[in-house]
Simulated scan of single mutants.
Amino acid sequence: MKPQSAFEREPARRVFASELRETRYQFKDGDDEKSPTYVILPTGIRSNRIFIVGTLTEKQRQGDQNIYYRGRVVDPTGTFFIMAGSYQPEAMQQLARIEPPAFVAVVGKPNLYTTPDGACLVSVRVESIAVVDRETRDLWVLDTARETLDRLDAFGTTEDSRKAQEEYGTQPDHYRKIVYDALTQVQL
């Protein structure tokens, strides 16, 4: 893997909510504190940024001193939990202005949190969020379906997909069904 320049960003991977919700494996690529943190998605690709589109169904302002917003974004496969706070001031202001329900496009970083009882919670730390229309959401579903199927077609042939198989015991047919079910929600 080539080193990242200071201004080059990782690509934001398209992923359905149901796949992100099943993500459990996170690692740092490097030893210093600025090294990027990645997750391995169950369909076999590493990601430190994701691109999602769905319906913002609710948002809540929380905190007094350190204000932040939490929200739920629903795609055809399930729910993403998003948050934006003082470390992402532009994203926090963007989210504050959006009134649910609204179709939104979100770029952010996946975060895994393990609760004291061992449950793994997945959320997305918002880098940017914007209101979009239904057609944009449907196009995102088509693109995400294609990218998910491409990952499944390459499954087992890459280092990341072998790691996903080891960590998750991924059943490609399970994700193919998720893709099929998501495509039934598209109205193009």
Rank of each mutant, 00 (worst) to 15 (best):
Q4T: 12
Q4I: 10
E8C: 01
A17D: 03
S18A: 13
E19T: 15
R21Q: 15
R21W: 05
R21T: 13
E22V: 01
T23Q: 02
T23C: 07
Y25T: 08
K28V: 15
G30S: 10
G30N: 12
K34I: 09
K34M: 12
K34W: 14
V39Q: 01
P42R: 00
T43P: 01
T43Y: 04
T43M: 03
G44Y: 01
S47E: 05
N48Q: 11
F51L: 14
I52A: 11
L56Y: 10
E58F: 04
Q60L: 06
D64P: 00
Y68R: 15
Y69R: 07
R72A: 14
R72F: 09
V74G: 00
P76W: 15
T77H: 10
T79F: 08
F80D: 09
F80W: 15
F80Q: 12
I82F: 10
M83D: 09
M83N: 10
M83E: 12
P89E: 06
E90I: 08
Q93Y: 02
Q94T: 05
R97M: 13
I98A: 03
I98K: 07
E99N: 13
F103Y: 15
F103E: 11
F103R: 12
A105I: 09
G108M: 04
Y113W: 09
T114E: 15
T114W: 05
P116L: 13
C120Y: 02
V124P: 01
V124F: 06
V124G: 02
V132D: 01
R137H: 15
D138Q: 03
D138V: 03
W140T: 02
L142S: 05
D143V: 00
A145G: 05
R146L: 13
E147T: 14
T148N: 06
T157I: 00
D160R: 02
D160N: 10
S161L: 06
S161F: 01
A164Q: 07
H174W: 14
H174V: 13
V179S: 09
Y180M: 04
D181V: 02
A182W: 08
Q185M: 11
Q185F: 09
V186E: 08
L188N: 08
